[in-house]
Amino acid sequence: MKPRKIPMRKDIVTGEMFPKKELVRVVRDKEGNVTLDPTSKANGRGAYIGLDRDIATEAKKKRIFDKTFEVKVSDEFYDELIAYVDHQQARRELFGDN
């Protein structure tokens, strides 16, 4: 049996390619709202960021999503992103890669 292809996506902060499961998608919808998309199925322009707290804090420091989506993103969104990534990173350490 042929091995399954693993979908790869590019982390917009580091520029590295990662398996899609190791990233979280951030979406800008038609109204210009930027939100987290853990299901990767929401409509809108998407960008991926790694599930690493250091990458998320660097994204906040460089205001990556402001530049990527060409819209002003609030500090609260970046704080929510850091909290989500930190939580997911802790889950992976506790329960493994599933």
Rank of each mutant, 00 (worst) to 15 (best):
V24Y: 07
V24Q: 07
V24T: 15
V24E: 06
V24N: 03
R25P: 02
R28Y: 04
R28C: 13
D29W: 01
D29N: 15
D29C: 02
K30Y: 00
E31I: 00
E31K: 13
G32I: 01
G32M: 02
N33D: 11
N33A: 09
N33E: 11
N33Q: 10
V34A: 06
L36A: 09
L36C: 08
L36Y: 10
D37N: 06
D37C: 05
P38L: 09
P38G: 11
T39D: 13
T39C: 00
S40G: 12
K41H: 09
K41V: 03
A42W: 00
N43R: 13
N43T: 11
G44K: 04
R45L: 11
R45I: 10
R45V: 07
G46P: 06
G46E: 07
G46C: 09
Y48F: 15
Y48T: 03
Y48K: 06
Y48V: 02
I49A: 08
I49E: 07
G50W: 08
L51I: 15
L51T: 12
L51W: 01
R53F: 06
R53V: 14
R53N: 04
D54A: 15
I55G: 01
I55Y: 09
A56W: 07
A56M: 06
A56V: 10
T57L: 12
T57F: 00
E58F: 05
E58R: 15
E58L: 14
A59W: 09
A59F: 09
A59P: 09
K61P: 02
K61W: 02
K62P: 00
R63F: 04
R63A: 13
R63G: 05
F65C: 04
K67V: 07
K67P: 00
K67T: 10
F69Q: 01
F69S: 04
E70N: 14
E70C: 01
E70D: 14
E70I: 08
V71Q: 01
V71N: 06
V71M: 04
K72R: 11
V73S: 00
V73T: 05
V73A: 06
S74K: 12
S74M: 08
D75H: 01
E76K: 14
E76A: 14
F77K: 02
F77T: 09
F77A: 09
F77H: 10
F77M: 11
F77R: 05
Y78P: 07
Y78C: 10
D79P: 03
D79E: 15
